[in-house]
Simulated scan of single mutants.
Amino acid sequence: MLFTHHPRYADLTPAQYAEGLAWLRRTGMVTAMNRPVVEIGDGELSDMQTASAVPPVQWSRAAEDARRAIGAAGEDALLRLLRRGGVPEVRHVAAESDAYGYDVEAARSLTERAHLEVKATTDPTRLVIHLSRHEYEVMTTDLEWCLAAVLVGADGNAVNVATVSRRWLHSAVPVDKAKEGSWESARLKVPASAITPGLATGVWRLLPDALIPSKPVWGLQPSAPLPV
């Protein structure tokens, strides 16, 4: 019930979570008492880890909650920009379900539509995103899908909005080498050459560049060509 209905676990199916647990058991990462061999916490070694020299995993609930808060702030900031810019149809589909594979539907007309996957950050020095397998597979089949990168300021508003090249995303994700295993999430450091200032999809733009904040970040150049 938790995996089926809680939004934090909607990225994978219950069967995928069960297979993940089974794999952890097969590889010895989970004990017979269903306890992790690797301590997930603040980095301090437990007695069991000290004896077995198993390195800790640096992770905390606070950091995960902060990452989710930044993501939500980025989506909200982009929604405000689209609505202030007069985009006639704006729908926050991520608030309904993670099944879409993108966060925002926006349309200027019947022929000018976009499905926006929003990746937010507060780091102006580099753009690092986490792309799920589901988001990637939607990208490969949906010509209206595009990835919008949002730099969120201290006030919660967008400091910069840019578009990440679909072609680069396709070249950067891992490649499954065997049918027995597949990647489910990828951490990608996006180079400046794969980022275009503004909010573009295909050959048209959702908003005029003058309406989009464009503080120089991530090594962007104002005259960078539009990657497709």
Rank of each mutant, 00 (worst) to 15 (best):
L24K: 00
D98R: 14
A51D: 13
L79W: 00
H92E: 13
L79H: 00
L45V: 05
G28K: 00
L147S: 05
V203N: 14
R8Y: 09
A73R: 06
L110V: 13
M139Y: 01
D103I: 05
D76A: 15
A18V: 10
W218T: 08
M48D: 13
Y100A: 12
H6R: 09
S171L: 07
W168G: 03
H6V: 08
V228I: 13
L12S: 06
E117H: 04
A63C: 05
L147G: 05
L82W: 04
R187Q: 14
K177Q: 13
G43N: 08
H170V: 15
A69G: 09
L211E: 10
A53I: 03
P55H: 02
L82N: 07
V57N: 00
P222F: 02
P216G: 12
G41F: 00
L110C: 12
I212W: 04
V38C: 12
P197I: 01
A186K: 04
W59D: 02
A63Q: 11
A15W: 05
S132M: 05
V164Y: 04
A224E: 11
G74D: 04
P197T: 08
E96S: 02
P191E: 13
V150Q: 07
A114Y: 01
Y17D: 04
L211S: 10
A194L: 02
L45N: 01
A99L: 12
N157Q: 14
V93C: 09
V190Y: 04
G156I: 04
L12Q: 11
V190A: 04
E184V: 14
E96D: 14
A107F: 07
A210N: 07
E105N: 05
M29V: 01
L143F: 11
S214R: 12
P7E: 11
T111H: 13
R80S: 12
Y136H: 14
P216D: 10
C146V: 11
V90I: 07
A158I: 10
E96P: 04
P213H: 10
Y100T: 12
R35K: 15
D65C: 06
A107V: 04
T163I: 02
I212H: 02
P14R: 08
R25D: 06
P14T: 07
R126L: 03
L151S: 03
L21T: 11
W204N: 00
R91W: 13
L78M: 08
A10R: 07
A224W: 02
I40F: 12
S165Y: 00
E75S: 03
A162F: 03
G153S: 10
L78W: 06
I212Q: 09
L79K: 01
L169F: 05
Q221I: 04
L147T: 06
P14E: 08
N157H: 09
R35E: 13
V190P: 01
A62C: 01
E117A: 14
L81Y: 01
V161A: 03
K215T: 14
H92R: 14
S132T: 15
A107L: 06
A192E: 12
P174S: 09
H5P: 05
R205A: 14
L207K: 02
E112T: 01
L45S: 08
M29W: 10
A22H: 14
P213W: 10
A194H: 00
R205K: 02
Q16G: 01
